[in-house]
Design a binder for these strands. Structure first.
Length: 754
DNA sequence: GAGCACTGC
């Protein structure tokens, strides 16, 4: 086994997990089937047709439960996720040779073959009878495209819009496109969608698909949702930050708007919880349409999931009938490692085995390389897709018959006490494991190979992932709710309340930013800040830039910072070139914020050239996104009546604006070469990718703290300590910036000047 | 001298 991946951090995490499996494993359960009542119930429930009797099931299982590759990893066939309405699926796949029908008629007939169709009238009656309902609609049931149309047909659109929220932009767009076809209308007319940067709706629109975040923004201007007659929150089980806030808001609106209908779609496992939260709302269940998926667990725990994944892929390739393989991995590095090892290993087979086409896919992979996974697999070859969680919900790949699931993913966590973010490898949830398995049964019967034991699935995995609202910085959530006039946040009706520590921290932060007064009410500054769809520190920087006459620079920097760390592209074989290109923007040790400003302005000077991006190792996609965000912020400047002004000749003015938003994030150099944060003291370091990593200024301000191998400040700019007193006198006193060991510090100048 | 799960406004 090559050693390359042996040193990889994720593997160590995996080992720890595997060790945990060992600890928990029942020593007698090795080769026997263990009863999994809970799991069976779960999966039967999932299938929508809980008809399998346990007796016949066991008989079937004992006949062929053991699925063992020769000389490889032993798997046990543990269960089957049933396919439902398979016959319908088969018949709808048949080409329709009646040429007389026009396209619209065909679409209307297709609608009638959807699993939801027989439930139409019953569903409409239930919606008529109840104000709030939880809809459990399995994948492929047609709930997202059909329910809004049923509501329209039943007359609900006469009283107002039917709005349907989605967690992702593409989903909102593509579903709206499909529904507009089915209704035979032009997209953007009767059927439209609304997503950030793109409003494809009009006065004619009666069915509106939108991202959940977009409905949340609409709440700010229409807190009673007066223009809607029905709101359907789709994919509620995904528990995005926006849906969780929406839940609390729409639940409240239904109390005083008895004419507003509310539909929440959830997965089977959460339905009861959703129903309880919405005052015992009835649950309406619609079966889905899916092919059966056979689930295999390893007989024994695997110590190294990277190795296990590689062996499993090769075993499938050599022993199993045609069909592509999807492997779920945690990140880019893991994907690249497995890519290399698989290439190396299959080279050894020569022409003895069929060709194995390896396709990596992750969100930061340049667009042109992402396209490869959608190319059809040539006859006689097999494709193996190495994917992150992006393949769990965000994109679907046709032709996948086998899923390999090591059972891990990276999850961002946030420590409200220290403000440190980190990205850690964690075991996935049961819900996530089922979702992954389902990716193999989209176009035919599938097989899922889990690289952990059934015991481990049952006992070590949580039912659901921790919702985002419980593991994120809440400053923006709090500002949004405050601007909706919700003052008592501690008693806000969250489905799963965030830790009170995180709420208090966010309140404190907003108070320090002068967005809230001492009574916790929104100030004029706070109201202006709430207009910007940004982290409040960035919004404050923009609002403060008015005073320093540099709003143009502030919105550029805010746009670039809100992209995250995916601006610079650093290919393995050209790291030196990429680093040199990056350092060109740091001339004069201006700091990382100004460097980002330089990147954007230089790109703008090239007329937003793609070629220029390639030459400078900059991600084109990220820059285009920065431009979209900047355009939006430019429009919002006008809304809050801030003049667009540029002050490039006075970089200190720009840095003062930055300090106005980020004064919390200050740090001072120690004799050791490390830094110490001024408030909530902790030892931190300048990230090696910073332009100031070797400059080590005495005082710095940073954008964020990330924990990787050390605690690093990412995006760092030099600071004059007197700015802290000048800008945040309520937060810093002289003693904070005085320093006995730094008598040589040129104090007074900045202070006297202002 | 490091390491970037994934969304969304």
């Amino acid at each position: 086994m090559p050693e390359a991946y042996d040193q990889e951090g994720g593997v160590n995490q995996g080992r720890r997990f595997a060790a945990a499996i060992h600890r928990y494993r029942d020593p007698g359960a090795g080769d026997k089937m263990v009863p999994f009542a809970e799991q069976e119930a779960w999966e039967n429930c999932q299938s929508g047709k809980a008809t399998l009797k346990s007796g016949s099931r066991n008989k079937q299982a004992s006949a062929d439960y053991e699925f063992v590759f020769e000389d490889g990893i032993g798997f046990i066939k543990e269960s089957i996720m049933d396919g439902v309405n398979l016959e319908d699926e088969m018949s709808s796949e048949k080409p329709d040779d009646s040429t007389a029908k026009n396209a619209l008629q065909k679409l209307q007939e297709e609608r009638k073959t959807l699993p939801i169709h027989p439930y139409r009238d019953e569903l409409l009656q239930a919606i008529h009878d109840h104000q709030v309902m939880v809809i459990v609609g399995e994948t492929g049931s047609g709930k997202t495209t059909q329910i809004p149309q049923y509501l329209h047909e039943a007359g609900y659109t006469k009283r107002g819009l039917v709005g349907c929220t989605q967690p992702r932009r593409v989903a909102a767009m593509s579903v709206a496109a499909r529904v507009s076809q089915e209704m035979g209308v032009k997209l953007g007319h009767e059927v439209g969608y609304s997503i950030r940067f793109e409003d494809c709706s009009s006065e004619k629109t009666i069915l509106k698909y939108m991202t959940d975040g977009m409905l949340l923004r609409e709440f700010l201007s229409e807190p009673d949702l007066a223009s809607y007659s029905v709101i359907m929150v789709d994919e509620g089980h995904e528990r995005t930050l926006s849906t969780d806030i929406l839940f609390g808001l729409v639940k409240d609106v239904t109390r005083f708007r008895k004419d507003l209908k509310l539909l929440i779609s959830s997965a089977t496992l959460d339905a009861k919880k959703f129903s309880d939260y919405f005052d015992s709302a009835p649950i309406f269940k619609i079966p889905g349409r899916r092919f059966p998926v056979t689930i295999n667990f390893t007989k024994a725990p695997e110590a190294d999931y990277i190795d296990a994944a590689i062996v499993t892929v090769l075993q499938i390739h050599v022993t199993q009938p045609p069909g592509d393989i999807l492997v779920f991995l945690t990140g880019q590095e893991e994907i690249e490692t497995i890519d290399e090892i698989l290439k190396y290993r299959t080279r050894g087979f020569g022409t003895k085995i069929a060709e194995l086409i390896i396709c990596p896919i992750y969100a930061n992979l340049p667009t042109e390389l992402q396209a490869k996974i959608f190319e059809p697999t040539p006859d006689g070859a097999r494709k193996v897709v190495l994917a992150t969680n992006i393949a769990e919900t965000s994109l679907t790949i046709d032709g996948i018959k086998y899923v390999v699931d090591p059972g891990f993913c990276k999850i961002k966590s946030y420590n409200p006490r220290t403000g440190v973010e980190s990205l850690l490898i964690n075991p996935i949830s049961k819900a996530s494991a089922m979702q992954r398995a389902g990716r193999s049964g989209r176009t035919g019967p599938g097989m899922c190979f889990r690289l952990y034991t059934a015991y481990n699935f049952q006992h070590d995995l949580d039912d659901n992932a921790v919702p985002e609202i419980q593991r994120t910085n809440l400053a923006n959530v709090v500002l949004t709710l405050k601007s909706l006039g919700i003052n008592d946040l501690v008693n806000f009706d969250f489905m799963d309340p965030p830790p009170s520590e995180a709420l208090l921290e966010a309140l404190g932060q907003l108070y320090a930013l002068n967005a809230l007064n001492s009574l916790g009410e929104l100030t004029k500054i706070g109201r202006r800040m709430a207009e910007f769809p940004l982290d409040p520190m960035l919004s404050k920087m923009i609002v403060a830039s008015e005073k320093y006459k540099c709003s143009e620079e502030a919105i550029t920097i805010a746009s670039m910072l809100s992209i995250g760390n995916s601006i610079f592209y650093r290919p393995k074989d050209k790291q030196v070139h990429a680093d040199n290109a990056r350092m060109n923007f740091h001339t004069g040790n201006v700091g990382d914020h100004i460097a980002l400003l330089n990147v954007y302005n230089t790109w703008k000077e090239t007329n937003y050239s793609t070629q220029w991006c390639y030459e400078n190792y900059i991600q084109v996609r990220s820059m285009k996104r920065a431009r979209d965000i900047r355009d939006q912020l430019e429009g919002l400047l006008e809304r809050v009546e801030i003049e667009p002004t540029s002050n490039l000749s006075d970089l200190d003015a720009v840095k003062r604006a930055i300090t106005s938003g980020f004064f919390h994030h200050s740090a001072k150099l120690q004799k050791t070469g490390a830094y110490r944060t001024l408030k909530k003291p902790q030892t931190v370091h300048i990230h090696p990718s910073s332009g100031l990593a070797e400059v080590l200024p005495r005082w710095v301000i940073y954008h964020e703290l990330v924990l990787t191998t050390k605690e690093y400040m990412r995006q760092v700019t030099e600071l004059k300590p007197e700015w802290l007193i000048e800008i945040a006198p309520h937060y810093y006193q002289m003693k904070d910036v005085e320093d006995a060991s730094t008598t040589k510090m040129p104090r007074g100048k900045g202070l006297a000047a202002d």
